[in-house]
Amino acid sequence: MTHSVLTPDTHASRSASRRHLLQSLQSVDTIESPQQQPTAVQHDPNAALISATGMYKSYRKGRLIIPVLKGVDFAIQPGEFVAIVGQSGSGKSTLLHLLGTLDEPDAGEIHFEGNRIDNLPSKAKDVLRNKYFGMIFQFYHLLPELSTLENVLMPSMIGQGVLRYWWNRRDHAQRATELLDMVGLGHRLTHKPKELSGGEMQRAAIARALISGPQMLLADEPTGNLDRQSGTEVMRMLRSLNREQNLTIIMVTHDSTIAGMADRTVRLVEGLVERVG
């Protein structure tokens, strides 16, 4: 059943067109980082789905500049399930936001499928987030005014114009319904988020993250706000997506048990990668 949602064929056919799109986006407007620090990369960046090299990021709090990432290097291969762990304030969420192009690094580069993405123009980043990345948050972040089905459809609505979306609305609705069936919410299509439990909301958020057929899922503490049973359910679902559909997943967590379910772990300590497990 899950193959009907995200088939390998779909991946193969999309991959070529996406690469072309990314290259064209790259040529729009290249912004150089303020500091370019060559750092030793622990992997072959060309083979990685996404890689970060020499990532620096700091936040300003009044007159105080707080460094968060102090030169992070790591790479994720296609189909990997990676957990980024670390204590509060170690910079793991910041790293996830940078990988998801929600924020820009002060220095360093991020490459996706071999193309640099951290310096893309904002419109190109919007397209990346909409079509290539799926995102899951600790607090689910479903839109309260919309039903479960509409929440899942939101990335499709954002990614297409009114007419195109309207023309294909039945296909979109069918796909969203299939995804909700997959996460076990086929009976909750018209319910508003406030009528769902935490676990159900997170499962709906997973369905939303999958609607565009992304190549990579970025999950920020996906179980952080759930009880153990719901957390386990969500993790089981992510694990199965990774194994059955070869979906690359990068998950931030502070729970070592949850992190243990990933293929490998990247531990951040005070803004640096301490250990890659």
């Binding site: 998801g100 904002s122 919007d126 954002i158």
Partner: peptide, 16 residues
């Protein structure tokens, strides 16, 4: 504000 953040995370452009 948070919903705006979500929309942007899902790829909504600022103009949208």
């Amino acid at each position: 504000t948070r919903d705006v953040g979500v929309l942007k995370a899902l790829g909504a452009p600022s103009s949208g």
